[in-house]
């Protein structure tokens, strides 16, 4: 009873001004969100329809295309590769970025910080199509940049087959990813260092005579959890949806040893004209992304509404 009365009071107090302001604040976000989720449902449906060929076909066939998908060796290669990407693309990037950001904080020689930041940020500003092409030149085993330099230095034993070796090709692709995202990661971490509280804590610890590495791992890292979480989620998702690097550098090859889900989806949808299969692969990508996003959402939710 008490509750109802409170509601009524609330309603009565609601003015047109409130309604309008709420609408202005909320409507754009709400509309875009509804469209986005509408399309998500649409994709789910397409993955269970019999859409193959160039013309849309919404005949329901259940899990037919998922069964086909799971029977394909290529699909499992993709899942394995995507997992490699998500582990090896994220952990080393975060770790190196952390060390680098810290190093820039404590030991920057005047002028070097801007230089380094510009240096590692340009890949973000540059077309992935082009950086991918450059890296495929770097990697060419016979005349590529790396092997040419190594041979010139007399280090022939270090030369490698890089992306032409089916067993290790994916790792060389991941290295490009790290190269590309390092600058971004450093910036995000640097900006989370720069809070007044954290700086005070560091100063206090320095006065106490704590070692620099100790400060990094037992004071800074626990206190920038928010920035770390954003960074890791961002990297995880970028690694999960990676397409451009594979498309440009190896086109999924040799064979399909460097194939990933997003690339297979592209091939299935637009080259094989198996749109339902492509949609199904999209659903799998979503489910994997969902797993990644859950920890972030829970964390953010707690912080947000604490």
């Amino acid at each position: 009873m008490e509750r109802v009365r409170r509601w009524q009071r609330k309603w009565r107090r609601l003015t047109w001004g409130d309604v309008i302001s709420t609408a202005i604040f909320l409507l754009p976000l709400l509309i875009f969100l509804v469209v986005l989720y509408g399309m998500l449902v649409w994709t789910f449906y397409v993955s269970m329809a019999n859409w193959k060929g160039t013309a849309p076909n919404y005949t329901f066939v259940g899990l037919k295309w998922y069964k086909l998908m799971f029977s394909l060796d290529r699909f499992w290669v993709d899942v394995r590769n995507n997992l490699k990407w998500m582990i090896l693309g994220v952990i080393p990037t975060t770790f190196v970025a952390l060390l680098l950001a810290y190093l820039l904080e404590i030991g920057s020689i005047p002028g070097t910080e801007t230089y380094i930041r510009t240096l590692i940020l340009y890949p973000v500003a540059m077309s992935f199509v082009v950086t991918g092409t450059i890296w495929s030149w770097m990697y060419q085993p016979d005349k590529g940049v790396f092997n040419t330099i190594l041979r010139a230095l007399g280090l022939d034993f270090l030369t490698g087959r890089f992306t032409t070796d089916p067993a290790t090709a994916t790792y060389w692709l991941i290295l490009i990813f790290i190269w590309q995202y390092l600058g971004f990661a450093v910036i995000i971490l640097q900006s989370s260092f720069r809070t007044a509280e954290l700086q005070e804590m560091i100063e206090a610890a320095t006065v106490d005579g704590a070692g620099r590495l100790r400060i990094l791992f037992s004071i800074i890292v626990p206190n920038i959890r928010g920035g770390m979480l954003i960074l890791i989620s961002l990297l995880l998702i970028s690694a999960l949806k990676v397409f451009d690097i594979v498309y440009v550098v190896t086109f999924g090859g040799p064979g399909y040893s460097t194939d990933v889900l997003a690339f297979f989806m592209f091939i299935a949808t637009f080259q094989q004209h198996l749109v339902a299969l492509g949609a199904g692969l999209g659903v799998i990508i979503f489910l994997m992304a969902f797993v990644v996003v859950i920890p972030y959402t829970i964390y953010a939710f707690r912080k947000w509404f604490e």
Partner: peptide, 27 residues
């Protein structure tokens, strides 16, 4: 059909990169 051809190319390219007659035959 195109759906086949695309997958077939991959299989042959995979064979040239890493030849295995029996597994290619079954693929």
């Amino acid at each position: 059909p195109f759906s086949f051809t695309q997958a077939y190319w991959d299989a042959v390219a995979a064979f040239i990169a890493d030849p295995n007659v029996d597994s290619t035959l079954s693929t």
